[in-house]
Amino acid sequence: MKHVIEIKMGCLEIITNETEELKTFVGSCVAICLFDLVSHVAGMAHVMLPRKSDGKQSAIKNDIGKYADEALSYMICDMIQKGADPKRIKAKMAGGATIFAHESETGLFNVGPRNVISLKQILKENNIPLVSEDTGENFGRWVRFDLNSGTMIITSNLKKFEKII
């Protein structure tokens, strides 16, 4: 039986124990996982927004996963400290939905797609390959990441599916 660690909104966790599993729920937010399966180090962040506007480091460790740029920077450093090889780190992500539709296309409520674009850009800047993703659409997703297999399991209560990426 895996010990499940639930990642709250705007938070992140790094694990090194294969008996642990990371889990979160995302709608327009994105669950981004970085992992090095050789060193058995993985992290998951629940990213809410694309960039931190003031550039200042968050004082509260609790919401270090809130902004895409800050979350990835923190995860990469912490994973390397815990033994990950930067050349082996890969990424998977899910979420970034546009939950609210509106009749006129004004660009409002599109934080989900903006989160996805921002994360892809930051991954590229850090030479981290995005090996798979399940993003976009208009529904919420439960996301689990298993360090042992490197699989991300995505379920939607609304659409009634389970997907492994």
């Binding site: 705007g10 995302v26 709608g27 327009s28 939950i99 539709a101 934080v111 989900g112 919420g140």
Partner: peptide, 27 residues
């Protein structure tokens, strides 16, 4: 006020999207 955004989803998803969109700095 913005134009209204409409959704059909479970409350958890709606709340997550609203909080994310509102996105204040304080947490």
């Amino acid at each position: 006020s913005s134009v209204p955004g409409y959704a059909v989803e479970f409350f958890r998803t709606l709340l997550e999207a609203v909080v994310s969109d509102f996105g204040n700095e304080s947490g």
